[in-house]
């Protein structure tokens, strides 16, 4: 008990340090720190609308984090998660623009399309890694770039709106393809349930199944795992597939829910942010939820800085990045001691 308590205190030290550090930055740029933090908080929590936005921003973070838990367990740095979101959104968009179905069929189909699109994009990174000897970080960076360029090509080419292409994306999807909201609030109950279910599923899969244990074995020592008879290539491809699928689902939700169309930056950086969430959570599934909530709140609250204090809203991102760096630093220091 005491041990756990002291672990928790130790875990808080880097967060406090990160806040101090950000405070120093705020003072340097001449902004009153207290007011800045209050603005972020208010921006995230002042109205039910904002609350709903925070929950909605959590959805892609949770889905991608759930997927990344799997690839991290297998010792893989799936930087390509960002492109996998995009790929899911692309496949869903293609169907949404070209099919007409009643919502009860259309929406599940589009969600599944997201799963498949992301899974295929993830599989590609996996194949490059396992059979091509291309490290997943480099493969992922390349595939991310291709996914983004492909999106722009489609938006400004085959999928451009009838009245001309703009940065605001394709034509809106038909309403039958829209993910239902909760009343007037910008929150999507289906998406929230799916996201929480994904985290829960991975929690149990990594803890209690032979599948999860084998992934962990591969992640910790691929050679030993292979000699033990674990089909390492298949499991690594599987990890990419699962992570890609969940990221693709997030992409599909971004397209048919939040935006109701395909926009150029559909992934919104949520993939990269989810990498930080999982690192900050120390690869522990349950910690992913509160951390994703925090990241989502900062993301939703930061634009207020720009409106009311003329500060750049990137400050929120800076805060998140600094916290992650301090936590990793604390872990590194602890390991060395």
């Amino acid at each position: 008990m005491l041990q756990r308590l002291s672990n928790l205190t130790l875990g808080l030290v880097p967060v406090v340090l990160a806040l101090l550090f950000t405070t120093v930055i705020l003072i340097i740029v001449g902004a009153p720190p207290g007011e800045a933090y209050r603005n972020i908080l208010q921006g995230a929590l002042e109205s039910p609308d904002k609350w709903a936005s925070v929950v909605t921003a959590m959805v892609p973070l949770l889905l991608c984090s759930a997927g990344l838990l799997v690839t991290f367990a297998a010792g893989l740095w799936n930087i390509g998660v960002e492109g996998q979101i995009v790929a899911g959104a692309l496949l869903a968009t293609w169907l949404a623009l070209n099919l007409t179905l009643p919502p009860i069929l259309f929406i599940p189909l589009l969600l599944v399309a997201g799963l498949i699109g992301g899974a295929l994009w993830g599989l590609l990174a996996g194949l490059l890694r396992v059979y091509g000897g291309v490290h997943e970080i480099f493969g992922g960076v390349g595939l991310n770039f291709i996914a983004i360029v492909l999106t722009n090509y489609l938006i400004f080419g085959p999928w451009k709106p009838a009245d001309g292409a703009t940065m605001s994306g394709t034509d809106p999807f038909p309403p039958a393809a829209w993910l239902p909201r909760l009343g007037d609030l910008p929150v999507y109950p289906t998406a929230v349930v799916l996201a929480l279910a994904a985290v829960a599923l991975m929690y149990f899969a990594l803890r209690g199944t032979t599948w999860g244990l084998k992934l962990k074995a591969i992640g910790k020592n691929q050679r030993s795992a292979f000699l033990m008879g674990i089909p390492t290539s298949r499991y690594m491809l599987g990890a990419f597939l699962v992570c890609g699928a969940l990221a693709g689902l997030a992409g599909s939700i971004q397209a048919i829910g939040v935006r109701q169309r395909l926009i150029p930056g559909v992934s919104g950086g949520y993939g990269f942010l989810a990498l930080l969430v999982v690192l900050l959570a120390g690869y522990r599934p349950l910690w992913v939820i509160p951390i994703a909530l925090f990241f989502a709140a900062v993301g939703v609250g930061s634009p207020r800085l720009e409106l009311s204090m003329q500060l750049d809203s990137a400050l929120g991102g800076t805060l998140e990045g600094i916290i992650v760096l301090f936590v990793l630093l604390a872990q590194g220091v602890k390991r060395k001691a």
Partner: peptide
């Protein structure tokens, strides 16, 4: 420990 066992996993695992 390099090729036979897996560092970080328990005997039960």
């Amino acid at each position: 420990i390099e090729e036979g066992l897996i560092r970080g996993l328990t005997l039960t695992e």
